[in-house]
């Protein structure tokens, strides 16, 4: 993907695509004015790239790298980062430890390639010494990690970007639009002709797509698609439980949730997967619209 930005005029609306956040980012804008669509698309792209630069764990020059290389020193965070860390801290509490931004280290032990290669228990056990939000000292805006610990905002980064871009477009444009980053999306509707944005959701079994009409709402999907391990008939999803260091079993293949913001939809769908066999029961208690594929 070498292109920077692609603008397409469709039936009464425009589509802007750009590559970012390791997925295809798409913005649909309910206008036939190409200049306007381009300007809004560039606004969306620059905000997305800003967030990616600032929070990607693959870069060495951003705040995430600074925190992870602090080696026990205290890092004072800017407002936006402090807000994200505070949000993550609340999620840790809300999910009773299931959502933990310090759990990224587990990737060193687990590779989900569809094989049956489980890591030795001792390897996982050793990593757990450096995992756990409760070991972190967080006194906003000051964050202190024990040496060896790391944070990774990947679990909320894409959803955060969708919501931020939505907020930018909302300020700049009065009409309907839809921000879709690889299936995590948020829309404002209805369109000028009265219709709603239509999106496809994979139903109970793969391949069956149900079209739903989305007004002003957000949708996020979490799933293990091709990323899993299979051993002795047990399917290990790529969703790891930071409390044990092991993958969740009996999780649905994919969960799609509708909520008012992309972050909320994403948290609900991720937490549902972490509930394993109780995913549907958990979602039903939340009073949200959802689809679960097993």
């Amino acid at each position: 993907m070498t292109y920077q930005l692609q603008l397409t005029q469709l039936d009464g609306y425009c589509r802007v695509n750009f590559p970012a956040m390791a997925c295809l980012c798409e913005v649909l804008i309910d206008t036939s004015d190409l200049q306007q669509a381009l300007a809004l698309g560039e606004l969306a792209r620059s905000e997305t790239q800003r967030i990616e630069r600032k929070y990607s764990r693959y870069r060495k020059d951003n705040i995430v790298a600074e925190i992870n290389q602090a080696d026990g020193r205290t890092v004072t965070l800017d407002d936006e980062t402090a807000g994200l860390i505070e949000f993550a801290a609340e999620l840790y509490d809300l999910s009773e430890g299931r959502f933990d931004i310090t759990s990224g280290l587990l990737r060193q032990a687990w590779t989900f390639d569809g094989s049956d290669r489980l890591p030795p228990a001792a390897t996982v056990e050793a990593l757990l010494n450096n995992i756990g939000w409760s070991r972190v000292r967080w006194q906003p805006p000051q964050l202190t990690l024990q040496p060896g610990m790391e944070i990774d905002l990947g679990g909320i980064g894409k959803e955060y970007a969708v919501d931020r871009v939505y907020a930018e477009l909302e300020q700049a444009f009065n009409g309907a639009f839809l921000v879709n980053f690889g299936g995590d999306l948020r829309a404002r509707g209805p369109r000028a002709d009265g219709s709603q944005w239509q999106i496809g959701v994979e139903k109970v079994s793969a391949g069956q797509v149900e079209l739903i009409e989305l007004g002003t709402a957000a949708v996020a999907t979490s799933g293990d698609s091709q990323r899993f391990l299979l051993r002795d008939g047990v399917r290990y999803s790529h969703i790891l439980d930071p409390r044990s260091g092991w993958p969740v079993t009996d999780a649905p293949r994919a969960v799609t949730v509708v909520a008012s913001s992309c972050l909320q939809a994403g948290i609900f769908s991720t937490l549902a997967l972490m509930m394993g066999s109780e995913a549907e029961e958990f979602l039903a208690a939340q009073d949200v619209q959802f689809w679960s594929m097993r």
């Binding site: 807000g83 999910s95 930018e168 909302e170 972050l263 909320q264 948290i267 208690a285 939340q286």
Partner: peptide, 23 residues
């Protein structure tokens, strides 16, 4: 247990705090 607990209200509050005035 988490499976029966409604987390919606606190999640909404946390999200509003994060996305701030723009949301």
């Amino acid at each position: 247990q988490l499976k029966n607990k409604q987390i919606g209200k606190r999640l909404t509050l946390a999200t509003s705090a994060l996305l701030g005035s723009l949301q």
